[in-house]
């Protein structure tokens, strides 16, 4: 299949970027990234600079791949990362527009690669359970209701790719943050510091310059792991109960 690609090219973080148009011959069994590999091989053969895009596991789990394809983070297929998107979902002769994730908190580094370290800093602010190695009791000491554990897992399935932020018209990180808050708050082990966690993570999220959630749900629609906005409501609950209900004044 013959494709026309319009790809965002940008030399460096502060350089001016623009769209470049390329033609590429693809095969329907290829993954989207393999199609870009083919393009890059052709560019290298012409001694041109290949398109920089981030990727690693190519199994849809590491969360490294990150582009916006025809206006959608990770492309048009629901529940699919770019690396798992296959060319059979595109038409022969189609023009595909490829852009980086865009948000003020995700500065472009080069071409399609963006800096997502803001998400790490949010986790560092409190996205964990404070337990030192060796301090744990027997794993079966606290039973956890199967449905609750499953619920927690659904939230924990977040791969930290940032598609929710890229998709949100407000560039809000609430789905990402709420997934971690919900994952941990639902488990008895994480419940203990749930209030402190919600406070700290929201504070960091605000510092990083993400937008505010106006419940548009574009995040859930574009999330490759189908993380639900139910988690955002849970985060709001946790935050309200800690900001207004807890006696800790900090």
């Amino acid at each position: 299949m013959k494709l026309t690609l319009k790809i965002w090219r940008q030399k460096a973080p502060n350089a001016k970027g623009r769209f470049e148009t390329y033609q590429v011959e693809a095969n329907p069994h290829m993954s989207f990234l393999e199609m870009l590999d083919v393009l890059n091989e052709e560019l290298i053969a012409k001694k041109e600079e290949p398109v920089v895009f981030e990727h690693d596991c190519r199994e849809g789990i590491c969360g490294t791949c990150s582009m916006v394809i025809n206006g959608e983070p990770h492309g048009p297929m629901a529940g699919t990362t770019t690396c798992q998107l296959h060319m059979r979902h595109f038409r022969d002769g189609e023009t595909i527009v490829i852009e980086p994730f865009r948000a003020s908190a995700f500065p472009v580094m080069k071409d399609l690669a963006v800096d997502r370290s803001s998400m790490d800093r949010i986790i560092q602010a409190g996205g964990y359970i404070s337990v030192n190695t060796g301090a744990a009791q027997d794993a079966n000491a606290i039973p956890v209701d199967k449905d609750t554990a499953a619920h927690s897992f659904d939230a924990a399935a977040c791969i930290g790719c940032g598609a929710c932020i890229a998709a949100c018209p407000n560039a809000s990180a609430m789905l990402f943050v709420s997934a971690k808050v919900a994952h941990l708050a639902l488990l008895p082990q994480g419940k203990v510091e749930a209030k402190r966690r919600a406070q700290a993570m929201v504070k960091q999220m605000d510092l990083e310059g993400f937008g505010m959630c106006s419940n548009i749900t574009a995040c859930e629609a574009e999330c490759p792991k189908g993380i639900s906005v139910e988690n955002i409501a849970r985060l709001n609950r946790e935050y309200l109960s800690s900001a207004l209900g807890s006696e800790t004044v900090a």
Partner: peptide, 8 residues
């Protein structure tokens, strides 16, 4: 350890 860390 993993359970204490919140591994579901």
């Amino acid at each position: 350890q993993a359970v204490a860390q919140g591994v579901p």
